[in-house]
Amino acid sequence: MTPVLILALLTGAILFGVGIYGALSQTNLVMIMMGVELILAGALVNLVAFWRFLHPEVYAGQMFVLVVMTVMAVEMAVGFGVAIARFRAKGSVEMEEAGDLQG
């Protein structure tokens, strides 16, 4: 068991926990997106560590990282689009005032 792999996995796990806290505790849409970014950053760290220390000869592992980076970019684009629309309609991106979006 290599300590570097474990160090990376611990970092990913803690980033994931901090991101979960941020996404659940914040009331502002942009801050919630920051929490989601941290969750995905934790996933990225784990993916790179798995590729590097367990299967460095399989480059599909790096493709996973690129896919998660794509998800991060898409989340930002759609999130900011929703934020602009919400701000234009209601003058605020506070999610506590967004009960009308409830399904």
Partner: peptide
């Protein structure tokens, strides 16, 4: 600009502990 702090801390701690 935060709410449900205790629940969020609990959820974050459980998620991190499980992954660790």
């Amino acid at each position: 600009m935060s709410h449900q702090k205790r629940f969020s801390i609990g959820a974050g701690a459980i998620a991190a502990t499980t992954a660790i």
